[in-house]
Amino acid sequence: MRRIDGAIAFRGGGFAPRARAWAAAGTLIGLVALWQALEMAQLVPTLFLPAPLAIGRTLWALTVSGELWKHLSASLLRLAVGWTVGTVFGIAVGLAVGLWSALRSPVMAVVAALFPIPKIALVPLFIIWFGIGEGSKIATIGFGVFFPTVIATAGGVDGVPRGLIRMGQGFGLPTWKIVRSIVLPGALPAILTGFRVTSSIAIVLLVAAEMIGAERGIGAFILAAGNLYDMDALLAGIVVLSVLGLAVAWAIGVAERVLLRWR
């Protein structure tokens, strides 16, 4: 037999990691500083990886000359139109799939068959269908956005508690009202999560979309820089895409906080 004497030691806690914004920013800044230091100590040849300062100088030159905005504005327009087209059709089809048995299996079969196709492989087809101008570029982005949106929306609709829909029916609400006031808001969190995915996909596909026949655009700029082995410009373009991705993710975060403040 043994005796126990004394205070009971705390043994809970942990298993609850918290986000620390300063640690995230600090890590990124630290990595860039380390990179610059390695270049300055000439441990990495600039042919293989240009120094952050060189990339910064290139970015600055591009900004001052207006070149950056020329490319960025063209890309933003394509992203906005392509993403919106893909999203609007995706939500409409996703809703239909989530609501009607007649559409569910046929449409989901088509979506499952087409979703995994790399949209880059379809670019030549889009050029034949939509021409070498803006049409094929918007179609590339729109198609890439469409399928994940259908899946996210249909999943969101499936996730709306059936009890809430029965409630709407129990109050004699018309179908459109149930869709508008119960199904859509109920699916909104899943749709917004889908936005995080589709906005990234849209940015990834921007480079593919601007492969063919684009005079301007960040993707076209990156491709041209890569082709010329202009590493400073290549990485400057990649930094712009990365910042664009961060900005979009931040905007979606804000939208989530505002639209889902009830959570």
Partner: peptide, 8 residues
């Protein structure tokens, strides 16, 4: 289960 819309 009340069936309230949590977003309203």
């Amino acid at each position: 289960d009340f069936a309230l819309l949590p977003w309203r």
